[in-house]
Computed example of a mutant assay.
Amino acid sequence: MTHSHIDHIEMSIPAKAEYVGVVRLTISGIANRLGFSYDDIEDMKIAVAEACTNAVNHAYHEEGNVKIACDLYEDRMEIIIADNGQSFDAKDLQGKLGPVDSKQPIGDMKEGGLGLFLISTLMDKVQIHDEAGVVLMMTKFLRKNEVEEHVDGISSLQSEQG
Rank of each mutant, 00 (worst) to 15 (best):
V22D: 11
V23S: 03
R24T: 09
R24D: 07
R24N: 08
R24S: 09
R24K: 13
L25G: 07
L25K: 07
L25I: 02
L25A: 10
T26Q: 10
I27C: 04
I27T: 01
S28H: 06
G29H: 07
G29T: 05
G29W: 01
I30M: 04
I30F: 01
I30E: 01
A31I: 03
N32Q: 14
N32T: 12
R33W: 02
R33Q: 12
G35I: 03
G35S: 02
G35E: 03
F36H: 08
S37T: 15
S37D: 14
S37K: 10
Y38W: 01
Y38G: 03
D39P: 00
D39R: 11
D40S: 13
D40Y: 02
I41Y: 04
I41G: 07
E42N: 14
D43W: 08
M44I: 09
I46P: 00
V48I: 14
A49M: 14
E50P: 11
A51I: 05
C52M: 15
T53Q: 14
T53W: 08
A55W: 07
A55E: 04
A55F: 09
A55P: 02
H58N: 15
H58G: 14
H58C: 11
A59S: 11
Y60L: 13
Y60I: 12
E62A: 10
E63S: 10
E63D: 12
G64E: 04
G64C: 05
G64F: 03
N65Q: 11
N65E: 11
V66K: 11
V66P: 05
K67G: 13
K67H: 13
K67I: 10
K67L: 13
I68F: 08
I68Y: 06
I68G: 00
C70F: 09
C70I: 15
D71G: 07
L72N: 01
Y73C: 05
Y73I: 02
Y73G: 05
D75R: 11
D75C: 05
R76Q: 15
R76Y: 08
R76H: 13
R76S: 15
E78S: 13
E78R: 13
E78V: 15
I79N: 04
I79L: 13
I80C: 15
I81F: 12
I81D: 06
I81S: 09
D83T: 02
D83Y: 10
D83P: 06
N84Y: 04
G85P: 02
G85H: 09
Q86K: 14
Q86A: 12
F88P: 00
D89Y: 04
D89N: 09
D89P: 00
A90R: 14
A90T: 13
K91N: 11
K91R: 07
D92L: 08
L93M: 15
Q94F: 00
Q94I: 01
Q94E: 14
K96F: 04
K96D: 07
L97A: 02
L97Q: 03
G98W: 00
P99T: 04
P99E: 11
V100H: 01
V100T: 01
V100Y: 02
D101G: 02
S102N: 05
S102D: 03
K103Q: 12
K103G: 08
K103Y: 06
K103L: 12
K103V: 00
Q104S: 09
Q104G: 00
P105F: 06
P105Y: 04
I106F: 04
I106G: 00
D108A: 12
D108N: 14
M109W: 10
M109S: 11
E111V: 12
G112N: 15
G112W: 00
G112Q: 09
